[in-house]
Each structure stands twice: as structure tokens, then as C-alpha cells.
Write a protein that binds this DNA or RNA. Structure first.
Lengths: 188, 188, 188, 188
DNA sequence: GATGAATGAGCGTTCATTCAT
DNA sequence: AATGAATGAACGCTCATTCAT
């Protein structure tokens, strides 16, 4: 039945609903429809869940990206689509995202994190390599490094909006364009 | 020293030492050398501390920036110095930084946050305006917006290093250069 | 008001009433009429109570002895009275006694125990010394050592009765006499 | 080996290793190499194990006694050997012994206990009867009763050493001699 | 008989918060 | 304003027990 997945999924739902700090293990097991003790068969604490959640989140980002990017479209359009994809995931999951991205700080499970974002970096990295070959971005770009900067920049910007701004939707559109322009120049 | 400052300072120390989640109010008052009840004369909860902490952190960033940036130096050098300043503060306070930046998510004191970073954005914004006037950056740059992207990019990159990387110092140097190149292109 | 004494006293009552293993900290604080958390201001766990209880028990034994032994009576009578005193305390507190005497095994607070029985040994030791001087016991007796054997013998016998025997009262009388005879021979 | 014996043996090992209170049924089944549920096919609870353990312990005492006592030796020597035997078993198993002897208090299985020590008392009783016939002990001794006092005395003394003393081995030798002298006088 | 994943009541424990001093 | 002993709700967690396989 996959109790482990059930727990992770229930945890994400609870985190979205009432925040991570206010979410108790009791909340999670109630949401998951399992017994209190069962939780501890799979995770040693609430924070031990984080890597598993990160993996799910990273999966969502990658999936959304792949779905958003039209392989037939031009380089410009694809860049915009990628930006939009990260913004979109952030819009829905920014609370969870914030933890995945930075809140990590409070766990000792950091080591397990490092590899979680790798598939995303790989994807963007490949995309950059291709763009480089086609002369769409400048020649001295190192795809592996730049992919991290790009994702970092986009996520940081998206977070700022979804955490603080009041008129989120309007601001999101403006900022996506801004990031796009910024990246266009940085890459060319 | 005022008890309020004593508390904020003790809280930052405790957070650095044992993380935010494991820090209790008891820890903070012990560190501050005041009585349990006194805390509540100044703050209503542990999370109510956050804006005060953010202010201190923002102050540190701004101060470090101003100290690092040589007004006589060239535009290029100044950009490098600004990047280095953000990296430096992040190196020491990345645990606290992570909260200031994203952990906020779990408080209801968000509104108080928004204004906290304003002085930093203003500073960078002014710097960009000046650079624009001197033709060092492209003409169509909007300093208020771009300053946020810049800070977001630099902090996100620094965080990645100080949270995850093992060989932090070496990586920090490489990444600062990378960010510099990236920004140079993005801005010109 | 002496919350610490309140806790120890409540613990002994609870132990007598429902046994040590079935007594929870909740029981103790309820009996003591204090808050759950208050317990932890004075003791770190249920087992950390043991030395404090032992002290109370040792006090009861010593007090009962002193009250039972008629200073004007003959050596023989005094020996009988001492035996009776130990039996009496054991009758009432054998459950607690069992722990004080042997159950200790399960705590890491053993070190604190050692000295608890010292006053009792001292008392019996003095009594033996006096009896020796008056020629009532054999000359080669070492009071400090023999006092421990005596107390050990009497308690062990009393425990056997109060733990296992069905017809406790009748058996107690028989066994006191038996112990008396045994000791009479051992000491002369 | 029969699963029942496997469980009892595993329980004793676990008790010796981490104490009785900290030993869980999970520990026992792990040590025994059987499934969680299998335990309940043989015992209804952890405390229901006690009589079976007591039996094993009593068996060990009796066996050690029989092996230690040289049938050809003199009465004096045999008494010494008996004392040494009880001390020896206590040295190794004093933790378990403490339960067998007193911890019982917390079970409702006491009835089953009473008979467990019977073979030991019988053995000592027979030995006393023989000694009486040979005029080695005084004539008015009641072997059945005195055997209990003797075992009680020796065990109580041994326990005191192995629970509390720091220099156990040295003290054990001294105390064995002391008990021997004491008993010699008590019996003659 | 044997298994072991799942259970959930109930425990110890924490810690933000209060309030008489 | 400052104290800190006392509070008790609420949490994490354990572990004896069950039951479908």
C-alpha cells in the first residue's frame, strides 16, 4: 500500500495547510490515516521527513519544467517557459519550498539533500549546453555552474513574491519578465 | 545594555549555537542572563523575535557592505566587493540567514519583515543608479527591481555553498567569481 | 511548603497502593497535588526518586528501632525488640523495602544509596559494642561488620514472609523467634 | 532448542546486559532470534517470564552448590564451599538475582515463585540434618527453618557487596569469611 | 506453530506562559 | 520593571499486543 509515500504525501498536505511548525506528527498520521506508531517505522522524527519531501518537490519542479517547455519553441520562449515553471511550483508550494530550499538549516539530514536537486541542474545544464552549441548563449558559459545560479536566482525571486507580496499574481508576471531580461543579458 | 537588545543578541547566539528549533526561550534567557518572565515584557513569543533579528542581520549586511566597498575603487571592483560582503555575512550567519530569508514562512509577523531589507535594496539601488549614469551598466536597467534580483542571486548562491558544500572556503571563492561574471553580463 | 518532600511522600504512598511498576509519574503528582511539570524541577525520573525514598525508609527503620528498644531492658529483650522493629517496618513497607534493598539494581543512582543505611548500621554497631563490653556477646565480634550481617539476615527473613507467605502474621511471630535464637547463638 | 527455553535464555541475557526495566520484549525476541508474535505463544507478558527465570536461577544455584561441595570434605569446609557457591552465582547474576529475590514484588505471579527455591532449601536442609546427626551443629536446630535463614543471610550479604561495593572481589573474600564465622557460631 | 507489520493507548517529558513576590 | 517557581496543555514516542498471512 506504500505507507511511506502515504506519510510523505500527508506531510506535504499538512505543511501546506497549517505550516511546518504548527504541523504535529499527530496531524500527519491523522491525515495519512495510519496509526501513530506506524510513523516511527519509517521516519525517526518530523525533520527526517525533509529529504523525502525534497525529493518529491524536486520531482515536481522537474516534471513541471519538462511539461512547460515546448521542445519546438525558440530558445527565448523556452527560457521564459522555464522561468514560468519554477514560479508556478513556487506559487503552490512556496511554504514547503522555503523549507526545502533554506529551512533545511535545522536538520542534521543535510547530507541527504545535496543530490536531490541534481536532476534539475542536469536538465538546465543540458539545455544550456545545447543553447551554447546553437550560439544562443555566450561561449564562455559553464553550464553546470550557471544552471545553479539560474535556478537560485529564479527561486529566490519567486520566493520573495510569494512570501511577502500582497498582490502576488500581478507581481509575479512583472518579475518573471524582469528575471527573463536579466538572464537574457547574463547569458548572452 | 537595554534588556531588549540583550535578548535579541542572546537569541542570535543561541540560534547559531544550537539551531533555531532546538533553542528554547529558557536557553535565550539563560544566555541573556535575565529572568524567564522578563522575556515576555519585550516579546510575546519566540517568533516575535524574528523581525528584531532580521533588523540586526540586515544591519550587519549593510554595514559589512559599506565597510567593504571602497568608494574610490572602480565599478568592477565595487561589484566584487559587494558580492564578497554578502558572502561574508552569510558565511558567519547562514543559519540565522536561512530563517531571515525563508523561515519567515512560519510566522505571522511577515508584514514587519518587508521593510527590513529596504535599506539594503536602497543602497544597491543607489549604486546601480550611479553606475547607470556613468554608463557602467546598460541603460534600460530599473535599479529598484534589479537590486532585489542581485541580492537574491548572491544570497541564494552563498546559501547553497554554506549549507551544502563540504569544501566551503574554496567553493566560496569560485562562486563569487562566477556570480561576478554572471552579473557583469546581466548588467551590461 | 516543601514540594520535594511532598513528592517523596506521595511517591511512597503510591508505591504502597499500587506497586512501583504500575505507579506513573502522573499518579505521583496527582497524589502530591502538584503540577506535572513541577515533578521535573526536583527529579529527573521516577528512579531518581529512589535515593530520597531510601533515606525516608532508613529513617523510619532507625526511628522505629529507637522507639522499640527499651534502654532499661536486658540485652536479650533489646535484641528481640530490634528484630521486631525491623519486622514491623517491613510489614508495612515491604513493597517499598524490596526496592530499597534490592530493586535498586535498575537504577544508575546506586552511588547515592550506599550511605543511606549507614545510620542504622551505626546504631546497631554501637549496641553491639556495648554488649561486647558487658560480656553479652563474644569477644571476637567486629561490630561494624556484624551489624550489616544482622540487618541483612533480619530483613531477608522478614521479606520472605511478607512477600510470599499467606499466613503472614502467624509466620512472622515464629520467624522472629527463630531469628532471635539464631542470632543469640551467632553472637555468643 | 525449544523456543521457550530460547526466550528465557535470551531474557536473562538481555536483563544482564541492559537491566530489567530497560529490556523490552522487542529486545528479548531480537536476542532470541524469533518473531515478535511468537513470544506470546509462550508467555503472556514480560513478568510472566519471571517464574521461569527464577527456576533457571535456582537451578544454577543448586548446581553450583552441588559442584562446589566436596562430599569427602569436612563439615567446616563444606559450609565454606556452600557460602562460596552462593556468592559466585550472585557475582555473575546479581542483577537478575535482585529481581528473583525481591523484584518479584511487582508481579502477580508470586504464587508460582514460592516453590522455586524449595530444592535449594531441601538441599541445605538435608545437609543440616546430616550435620546434626553427626553432632556438628547444635541439637535444637530445625533444618527446614534454619536453611532459609542461612540462604537468606548469605544472599543478602552477597547482594550488598555486588550492588554497592566498589572493590567487589576483595570485599567478597572478607565477607565470605565473616559469614562463615557468623554461621559457625549460630549453628553450634 | 510462526511471522512481523501495524496498532494506539498511555506514558514521560517539554516548555511557553503566568503571577505572586 | 524584574523575578523564577510553578503550571498544565500538548507533544513525541514507546512498546505490549494483535492478526492477517
Amino acid at each position: 500500500m506504500g505507507k511511506k509515500k502515504l506519510i510523505v504525501s500527508a506531510a506535504i498536505d499538512s505543511f501546506l495547510e497549517k505550516g511546518i511548525h504548527k504541523t504535529t506528527i499527530s496531524d500527519i498520521v491523522r491525515e495519512a490515516g495510519i496509526a501513530q506508531g506506524t510513523f516511527y517505522l519509517y521516519f525517526t522524527s518530523k525533520w527526517a521527513l525533509m529529504p523525502a519531501i525534497a525529493e518529491v518537490m524536486a520531482g515536481k519542479i522537474l516534471q513541471t519544467m519538462k511539461e512547460s517547455v515546448d521542445e519546438q519553441a525558440s530558445y527565448d520562449t523556452q527560457l521564459k517557459q522555464m522561468i514560468a515553471a519554477v514560479f508556478e511550483v513556487n506559487r503552490v508550494y512556496h511554504e514547503v519550498q522555503a523549507i526545502v530550499y533554506a529551512g533545511v538549516a535545522s536538520t542534521e539530514h543535510i547530507k541527504e539533500w545535496e543530490t536531490v536537486y541534481a536532476p534539475i541542474y542536469d536538465y538546465v545544464s543540458s539545455w544550456l549546453t545545447e543553447a551554447k552549441e546553437e550560439g544562443e548563449v555566450r561561449d564562455d558559459i559553464q553550464p553546470e555552474k550557471i544552471s545553479k545560479l539560474m535556478i537560485g536566482l529564479i527561486e529566490a525571486t519567486a520566493e520573495q513574491i510569494y512570501l511577502y507580496d500582497t498582490d502576488k499574481e500581478a507581481e509575479a508576471i512583472v518579475q518573471q519578465e524582469e528575471v527573463y531580461q536579466f538572464l537574457q543579458h547574463a547569458l548572452q
